[in-house]
Design a protein around this nucleic acid. Structure first.
Length: 715
DNA sequence: AGCACGCCGACT
DNA sequence: GTCGGCGTGCTC
């Protein structure tokens, strides 16, 4: 801290003039406070406030900021840091202290500090983003009332322990290995194929930790998946408190759950990515289920990866971290490969290959679409062979699942006369034709209009759909399979709350013969009577410019394959059908043998050759503006300015380019890739560059915003 | 981000 | 004559 602020402060915070006996001289202390100030506001470090008494770091409080009063957290004072108050700033007093609440733990603050520094944001922005929003709305007394009510209503958990299923031989081995290494707080990658019983491992590990008086944190990629898992944990831990934490909770509920976590009343915390910041005071284990899932990467604000932060958190708190997946991310796989196999050897790898109950994975059948006569493909997305296989299932009373990762009826409409296409007025994208409500909808900005009767450009009445989405597939299946009950699950049919559950229960009750859907049905659901899964058009990922597309597609197809033949008596009939124009592609070869390791090896070789993660480390500088040229010009200026700095740090800066969807909601988007062979070097560079970025006013007006994305999912 | 202050068009 | 558009600037 620079000069003593107390003398300056005394002048402004003195009691009203005329108060007779001057109050006994108390020396107020300066408390560093972090608040929700976005990075480009210029307020990156903690702000100083005056307090009558010292405040423990981690204490929640309210402070005045300009004309308003905001929620803040008392932060740690670190020596040598640039925390001096600028000249001419008069310190103000802390407005209220949330004394009733325990301070946020030191490990939590350390995690927030790490995340802020790694992802190039202010600690305040990260801290406030991961606190329950409801906290901002409450005064100290209101919060106190909530706490009192919460404590009064806390019932002792009750219930009897159900019978423990006996672990399989493989599970027993994994459990033994985990128990043996637990003391070293290792990171373990549990590579278990679908149906191999990873959840049982999670339950057992959590049990070990909870019985030792500690808490377990379990992360899942999607809100949809929490209820199922929560049920399993509740059933297994009848005497313990299981608490969920995700953005789908009502504000009051989310606050309540978070408070239970902070008070140490929750034994098990289940949640989505934001739960990686759950302030557990007695953390003993972190589990990340489906660790490869892209949902773990936050795409707004502080763009953190909850999976990566889970690993950091394990290190900070000295507790084991368990990453589970049937198709691990290549990053985790590389980290878990021993150095002798070209990996980083950082994680322990444990494998479970067998399906519980003796089921086998379905036979994979590739349909070579290039061999089909053109006229077959003209009116249907489905090959005769696949239709035949679907009819067989129908005849036997078994169910089928048909995957198409594109909702709506057709991705675009076009005029047969003048070539008009259904472009969005605000985005560089086509509007999708939704036949059910006769609309054209932009899936980027939401613009929705009635389908025009005739071509808006030339008046021609013949406007045709091009390509197919799930709606059209559903229609074609109903035509091709008379008498079949065809159902559909995608983001459109499940918009209403409860709609997903309703449709799923129809499937489970056997009221649906053929289920059409997007990727959302490939995950987690246990369909007992499903003996066929088909991917109608999975080739796009093979040639995508997104370097992670093959990895995502392989994972999706493996997960989808896992939906078939879950009941052992049908397992031998279970098939995964893939329609493809490239049946010889390595991705499908690996899929055929259910060989993730082979797929990963091939992908890693490609990544190494192309200089992509995990062999290099990436960051993006993104800029949005009204004009593409403005966004790019700003990127070029800050890039030119950093040339020397980049050279110094052995970092490569690439030229600015527009995003693949260049314009969204009238916002032109551009980005610039930063690449380095060394993660620390990239970090040092970004930190040094940050000051320039925040100082640099755009030369032309109209730059709307910018952001750094460290370890971006796509480039 | 909020929330001010600060100058130019259509209305109670 | 005011209400209000969002451009620029600041917040310990």
């Amino acid at each position: 801290m620079g000069k003593s602020p107390s003398s300056r402060a005394a002048a402004t915070s003195a009691p009203a003039a005329g108060a007779e006996p001057p109050a006994p001289a108390r020396e107020p202390v300066v408390v560093p406070v972090v608040i929700d100030a976005p990075q480009y506001s210029g307020l990156k470090a903690a702000l100083g406030y005056l307090s009558e008494r010292p405040l423990t770091p981690g204490t929640l409080l309210r402070v005045p900021l300009g004309r308003r009063e905001v929620l803040g957290v008392a932060w740690d004072t670190r020596s040598g840091e640039d925390s001096a108050v600028p000249d001419g700033v008069t310190l103000r007093e802390v407005a209220a202290v949330f004394d009733a609440l325990p301070p946020l733990p030191a490990a939590w603050r350390e995690l927030v500090d790490f995340a802020a520094s790694y992802y190039q944001r202010s600690p305040g922005e990260v801290a406030l983003a991961v606190l329950p929003p409801e906290l901002r709305m409450l005064s100290a007394t209101q919060l106190e009332r909530r706490l009192t009510r919460l404590r009064a209503k806390l019932l002792p958990p009750s219930g009897a322990q159900g019978a423990l299923p006996a672990p399989s031989a493989e599970q027993a081995q994994v459990l033994q290995a985990l128990a043996a290494s637990a003391g070293d707080a290792p990171v373990t990658l549990l590579h278990g194929s679908t149906g191999s019983g990873k959840t049982e491992i999670y339950l057992r590990e959590a049990q070990r930790v909870v019985e030792a008086g500690r808490q377990a944190l379990v992360l899942v990629p999607e809100i949809n998946l929490t209820p199922q898992l929560e049920e399993r944990f509740l059933a297994r831990f009848p005497g313990r408190r299981v608490v969920s934490l995700h953005s789908g909770l009502t504000p009051a509920r989310r606050l309540k759950h978070w408070l239970m976590v902070l008070l140490g009343e929750a034994d098990l915390v289940l949640g989505t990515r934001l739960a990686v910041f759950a302030p557990l005071p007695r953390l003993g284990l972190v589990i990340v289920d489906e660790e490869h899932d892209p949902s773990y990467k936050q795409q707004e604000g502080a763009r953190y990866s909850a999976r990566d932060l889970a690993v950091v958190r394990g290190r900070v708190e000295g507790v084991p971290v368990l990453l589970g997946s049937a198709t691990p991310s290549l990053e985790s796989w590389h980290n878990a490969l021993p150095a002798t196999e070209g990996g980083a050897g950082r994680y322990t790898r444990l494998t479970m290959a067998a399906r519980i109950g003796g089921g086998v994975l379905p036979t994979v059948r590739l349909v070579d679409m290039s061999r089909l006569p053109k006229e077959v493909l003209r009116d249907s997305a489905l090959s005769p062979a696949l239709l035949g296989a679907l009819r067989e299932r129908l005849a036997r009373g078994e169910q089928s699942l048909v995957l198409l990762n594109r909702r709506g009826y057709a991705p675009v409409l076009h005029c047969t006369e003048c070539g008009w296409k259904s472009a969005c007025a605000h985005c560089s994208a086509w509007r999708v034709f939704h036949k059910l409500d006769r609309t054209l909808r932009c899936h980027h900005c939401g613009l929705t209009e009635r389908v025009p009767r005739a071509c808006p450009d030339c008046g021609n009445a013949d406007i045709q759909p091009t390509g197919r989405g799930t709606e059209r597939l559903e229609e074609q299946l109903a035509l091709a399979l008379p008498g079949a009950r065809v159902g559909r699950i995608d983001a459109d049919t499940t918009r209403r709350s409860g709609a997903l559950e309703a449709e799923l229960s129809r499937v489970h009750a056997g009221e649906v013969d053929v289920l059409v859907g997007t990727q959302m049905i490939a995950k987690g659901h246990d369909f007992r009577r499903m003996t066929l899964v088909a991917a109608v058009n999975p080739d796009a990922a093979l040639f995508s410019s997104d370097f992670r597309a093959p990895e995502r597609q392989f994972s999706l197809l493996m997960q989808a394959a896992g939906r078939a033949g879950r009941a052992a008596e049908q397992a031998d009939r279970a098939e995964m059908w893939v329609q493809t124009w490239h049946p010889q592609h390595a991705l499908y070869a690996a899929l055929r043998t259910h060989d993730y390791a082979a797929f990963a090896q091939a992908q890693l070789a490609e990544r190494r050759a192309a200089g992509l993660p995990p062999y290099t480390h990436l960051a993006l500088l993104r800029a949005d503006a009204r004009e593409q040229s403005v966004a790019q010009a700003w990127l070029r200026v800050v890039s030119d300015e950093a040339r020397e700095l980049a050279e110094q740090h052995q970092v490569a800066l690439y030229p600015p380019v527009p995003l693949s969807v260049q314009r969204v909601a009238d916002m032109e988007r551009a980005q610039l890739l930063v690449e380095s062979a060394s993660r620390p070097a990239l970090q040092r560079f970004l930190t040094a560059w940050d000051a320039t970025l925040r100082r640099k006013r755009p030369e032309q007006k109209g730059l709307l915003r910018w952001a750094v994305d460290v370890d971006p999912l796509a480039i």
